[in-house]
Amino acid sequence: MAAVKHQTMILVVSKLLLFLAALLPLGFIVTDVLAGRIGPDPGQAITERLGLAAFQFLLLTLVVTPLRQITGWSGWLRLRRMLGLFVFFYACLHILAFLQLLVGWGDLWATFTQRPYIIAGASAFLLMVPLAATSTKAMMKRVGRGWKPLHRLIYPAAVLVWVHFLWQARSDITEMVIYGSVLFVLLLLRVYWFGLTTLIPLRRR
């Protein structure tokens, strides 16, 4: 009984800490704006930083399974939903900032369909919408056996986000190579542990 309580405590505390930590990227942006450190092109800076935060949280959600495999603690899984919702949160803010602070709300269709890198980013976002929508316990029950394969959509979404990032490089791609390598290793680990078909979304095993 005490052990169970202890476990719950750990989980509650880690969730709380994670929640606060996940707000840090937003907090840094806000303090930089308030302190006048955001620079002369704030729309660009804010949009980029929100997008990068979304990508970083996406990679973190993909770290959860390897962490469980390595440490054997299944509590990690309980943190994944929050991480995933933060990916969606930062992706939404990123798109809102892009529209409000950079390009404006006129002719949305043209905005999202004319440039390949934006098509990649927008597609990644669209793939994540059903994942966020089915994240609650009630929805998990309703979707049932299809939930797991559905949520494998995160793999193509992650690759699209990376492409979205890469296509914005003008010359030095060091950052893109680093993020790409991390993603590659995380995907490879899944293939190693569970086989290639794990990466295929919407297919039941």
Partner: peptide, 20 residues
Amino acid sequence: PRWSQKRERRLPSGILRPNW
């Protein structure tokens, strides 16, 4: 090829109202 050149943001640009 990756973005439009019709407008520009004259810096410093505002946060809520970009200086297009």
